[in-house]
Nucleic acid binder design. Structure first.
Lengths: 328, 328
DNA sequence: GTGAAAGCGCTAACAT
DNA sequence: ATGTTAGCGCTTTCAC
């Protein structure tokens, strides 16, 4: 039913080997036959069977991307740039989405990727547990985490999160703020947050400011978290806040608005991520802006470089900047 | 190097056939061997080679999803629900992203999907051109468009876009508005827009309102489009606007805000889509709310039902509702 | 309940 | 420049 290489071979009265050669642009045939074969293949509506091809050639030039439908909104940015870079290097990409907080589901997806024999696996706004890493190692596929560092032994490309915390805080302090809130996931459980919070604390220390417990709101990266935190801050004497994602900061902004608290006059607000969203709020959110585009591209190059030296753990860091807009 | 079924067979001193059977839960073996095989496979770190498996079984239970990184933000919603439903039916899903306005790229991706022998292909916020449809037909894969109807001969599941236009407009009229703007992509080139605009015109007619050319702004579905349109409307006597996506409406909202024009006091605003975004603006956007979750699920069921009767073109419609929030 | 063997559609030596 | 052939790793009759 489906036309295969042997059908073309028959129709062209030539061997399957030759057909394969021209269809894959491998050279070693005359211009004439090349054209003839191509034409016939076209007419017959031939489509390579990837399974057969991959199997026979033991090849493997597709990279897998796993991401979660997270509260954050920078996935697209990373994915798009990853794909762009992949295209440059003639790699195929397949995506799969994992649900949040569903280890079993994630495991299944990783399994699926392994079975499809991707040569590398990128994780965006999620990361594999130690067991999953173990599984990937056994399967000999190279995992890499983007934009979400872990203390696990996986390669990663991300921003310097400690420095993000430090810079954001310093920025606020240098603009005259003294009582600085921090809204984030759990400082103890979330690794990225731990780093950022360390930077935050260090900046406070360096400026002889004394941290107070009610400055910290531990929730997650969501808009809701921001809303809730803004509410909480009504009972405090905070004069500035760091929201650890654009969504959180948006929530903060609206929360303050709803409470009749003026931003930036009564509270300054700085976001972390710096996606488009920041320019779409009123007032526009100042932010620590991560370079997600660069992360995506760097990650792919990294994958390619390390193809030879499998499972060497590398940690790459991409520069960020601070964009002052209207909330500071 | 990579452990294969024959390795397990050897280790268990049994035939590859039996190994295959237990690994695929096909029955026809004793409980004892099942456990033994499973254990050994586990210990040896076996992962099925999908290429080989698919090839041998000529099977095919993965569905492909193609979407664009569009200005709209409902992709996630559809995708998530598509995957949920797919999981229920034990189907695998692979995603790929197409760039906007890149037919060559789309074609390549479709090709890729065909080569991977997906049994069906869903398009989200993009759709195949007639040539692409032709290609898909030849390849015998069933295409389906979600949330973006076309006049092409493809199956689709979407809202009743004419009715969306009609209802949105009527709603505004019933609330006392008479001069109603409409911000959308090209009314002539974008099929969905054509339908909605027809509904809009009809509602106007039905209420004996006379359409004026400067009520219509033809751009696209983006935030920027809304911003621009808001600007344009400063020169008009509009008293309400329909933004044809949440992004557009958000742009309108901010554009009016920037111009010092009060929403909803001076202009009312109703959005189309009704994603979370609507509750995250201030004021919150009233909207015609599409049921994207249902679309995703319906689509998958449709795909499964039609697996037997390939390439029968079906057009499914999913109910929408109107959510009055703060901009009307 | 289990095994032998013939492919699935393609690629990659190795010949010619 | 082209053909022959032996697999790639798995599934699936068909025997037993």
């Amino acid at each position: 039913m489906k036309v295969k290489i042997s059908d073309i071979a028959k129709a062209a009265d030539i061997s399957t080997a030759s057909v394969s050669r021209v269809l894959n642009h491998q050279g070693g045939y005359s211009q004439a036959t090349a054209e003839r074969i191509t034409k016939i293949a076209d007419e017959m509506g031939y489509f390579k069977n990837r399974s057969a091809s991959d199997l026979a050639s033991r090849s493997n030039n597709t990279i897998g991307i796993i991401y979660t439908d997270f509260e954050t909104n920078f996935n697209d940015l990373i994915i798009r740039n990853t794909m762009l870079e992949a295209k440059q290097h003639h790699l195929d990409v397949i995506l799969m989405i994992a649900q949040q907080n569903d280890p079993a589901g994630l495991t299944k997806i990783i399994r699926d990727m392994i079975e499809r024999r991707v040569f590398a696996l990128q994780f965006i706004s999620t990361h594999p547990s130690p067991q999953m890493i173990e599984m990937l190692n056994r399967a000999n596929v190279f995992p890499q985490v983007i934009g979400d560092a872990t203390n696990h032994t996986v390669s990663s490309v991300s921003s310097d999160d400690y420095e993000i915390g430090y810079q954001a805080t310093s920025y606020l302090i240098n603009h005259g703020h003294q009582r600085i809130g921090f809204v984030s996931p759990s400082v103890t459980r979330d690794y990225v947050t731990r780093l950022r919070f360390s930077g935050y604390q260090r900046a406070l220390d360096d400026h002889h400011l004394h941290f107070k417990a009610d400055w910290l709101v531990e929730e997650n990266y969501s808009y809701q978290a921001g809303l809730k935190a803004a509410n909480h801050y009504q009972q405090t004497d905070i004069d500035a806040v760091i929201g650890v994602s654009d969504e959180v900061s948006w929530g903060l902004l609206n929360g303050f608005y709803d409470a009749g608290c003026k931003v930036p006059d009564q509270v300054a607000l700085i976001s972390v991520d710096g996606t488009q969203l920041c320019e779409q709020t009123r007032p526009q959110l100042s932010s620590v802006t991560q370079d997600f585009a660069s992360m995506g591209k760097t990650a792919v190059r990294q994958l390619i470089d390390n193809r030879a030296t499998p499972h060497q753990v590398t940690t790459l860091t991409v520069p960020f900047k601070i964009d002052a807009r209207q909330t500071t």
